[in-house]
Design a protein around this nucleic acid. Structure first.
Ligand SMILES: NC(=O)c1ccc[n+]([C@@H]2O[C@H](COP(=O)([O-])OP(=O)(O)OC[C@H]3O[C@@H](n4cnc5c(N)ncnc54)[C@H](O)[C@@H]3O)[C@@H](O)[C@H]2O)c1
Ligand SMILES: NC(=O)c1ccc[n+]([C@@H]2O[C@H](COP(=O)([O-])OP(=O)(O)OC[C@H]3O[C@@H](n4cnc5c(N)ncnc54)[C@H](O)[C@@H]3O)[C@@H](O)[C@H]2O)c1
Lengths: 211, 211
DNA sequence: TCCAGCTTGTGACATAATTCACAACGTAAG
DNA sequence: CTTACGTTGTGAATTATGTCACAAGCTGGA
């Protein structure tokens, strides 16, 4: 089982590797990949080791090999199709973003409790009313969801998602979701992050322990 | 100098402390604060220690004391007024969010290169054209910025921000910003995070090392 | 008064994450 | 063929982060 930090780096490596492949590059050294991201060459090699991949001292790592292994880890029928709950300001921005973006994951369906917003298409994605949530998520075997509902509804909706079989939630509401241990939750708390950025900004420095 | 993880926790403590204060609670024990967040009681006490705060064994910590010290750390004229660059889908969602939210930080000004979008008011915030960026940021002594421009423009805009005196950037573009060591950057890479969530979702587990 | 039952503060410990440093490797040029 | 150079793979060291466990503190009730 890979750690969270590792998985984040792998995703970042993949983006750069795709770029490199598009530019016709077939092999890459750890120091090049490191320069593109924020990590050291040793870290890249350590990650490759954890993945069980190896390169050659003369040519480095094979770009297509790496991409293939990363796809095996990161792309999965249950993770590349996600549901989005709450098509408000943020939800719509995300729908537009995922639609435009060339990445693997797509928003397969969206839900909203507001009858004005459901039963229509928004940014190329069908928006359904909340009463069909469990049935549709079960039918499509969706396991991953993005939660963009107001704070006070977040826990109740999360509970419904989990009951419908969702095991990974990207939560934008500034609340700690109370779900079982088998469900992975990442809460992106933008208010908190902006306070953190402000903290280091006024001190005119990077955080301790940053390269 | 506090670590990034610590500052994030402090911000989270503050949210709950404000709630408690609004409900008339004057003192709080470490285990209560811990239950509201995702940390242990020992972690809360360690954070308080790092802050130089102390409580009493009988009544716990004084809510107003804590809030006062946290405000001293997190609120600063240079960090509570931020600039937002790029009023596209995401930028507008953030403008609406910060406007509605009761928090300390506010978006004081926004910029966009599109003449259709600048020289108007969006979500209660003036949007200016890019050519006035340096002057306005300097004049208001803005140090913190939120970057919501397309990936290919992110580095150029970041450079301008830094030249204008910005030392903290919350970056939403999936790019490593190349800025000096004295500038703090936090990149929220949503694509990367959704891949991480998917990774753990298909494996039906929390990440290693999570409570 | 004095004790029971909670708390805090913190040294010591445990775990996670990252970097160092170097032997072994592979190629290209001479 | 052989040397020079820059690379990989990885054990060990280092740093960062979180937890344990317990002495000492405080309060309310007997
Ligand atoms: N807008 C931002 O930039 C931003 C930034 C950070 C966090 N957030 C958080 O994201 C969440 C959504 O933000 P927003 O700005 O899009 O808010 P919003 O009010 O614009 O949208 C909320 C949407 O959720 C729908 N909704 C409400 N209750 C629901 C329910 N029980 N089930 C399903 N749908 C429901 C509403 O109809 C609406 O469409 C909030 O929790 C907010 O704190 C937003
Ligand atoms: N929309 C999302 O949910 C989302 C999610 C994650 C990341 N992002 C990232 O955030 C950024 C913005 O996303 P978006 O969806 O709002 O895009 P968008 O295209 O809707 O908006 C971009 C805005 O930036 C303006 N702009 C373009 N070039 C500029 C420049 N050089 N200087 C100033 N303004 C400029 C445009 O006029 C437009 O208003 C992108 O980098 C995107 O990858 C967006």
């Amino acid at each position: 089982m890979l750690s969270e930090k590792t998985v984040e780096r792998l995703s970042e490596y993949r983006r750069h590797l795709s770029d490199l492949q598009a530019r016709g590059v077939t092999h890459v050294f750890s120091n090049l990949l490191a320069a593109e991201t924020r990590v050291t060459a040793a870290q890249v090699r350590r990650d490759m080791m954890n993945l069980g991949l190896s390169g050659s001292t003369a040519t480095g790592y094979s770009v297509s090999d790496l991409l293939e292994h990363l796809a095996g880890l990161l792309d999965h029928p249950h993770s590349t199709r996600v549901a989005l709950i709450g098509t408000g300001n943020l939800g719509r921005a995300l729908l537009a973003f995922f639609r435009a973006r060339p990445g693997k994951a797509v928003i397969a369906m969206a839900f909203d409790s507001d009858p004005e917003k459901s039963n229509r298409v928004c940014c190329g994605c069908r928006v359904y009313p909340m009463d069909s949530l469990e049935a549709r998520i079960r039918e499509d075997e969706i396991r991953t969801a993005i939660l963009c509902v107001p704070e006070q509804d977040a826990n109740a909706v999360a509970q419904r998602l989990v009951n419908a079989g969702v095991t990974g939630i990207l939560n934008f509401a500034p609340t700690r979701l109370k779900v079982g241990d088998q469900v992975y939750v990442d809460t992106m708390d933008i208010s908190s992050v902006i306070e953190k950025v402000g903290y280091y900004a006024v001190r005119g420095t990077r955080a301790p322990g940053r390269k």
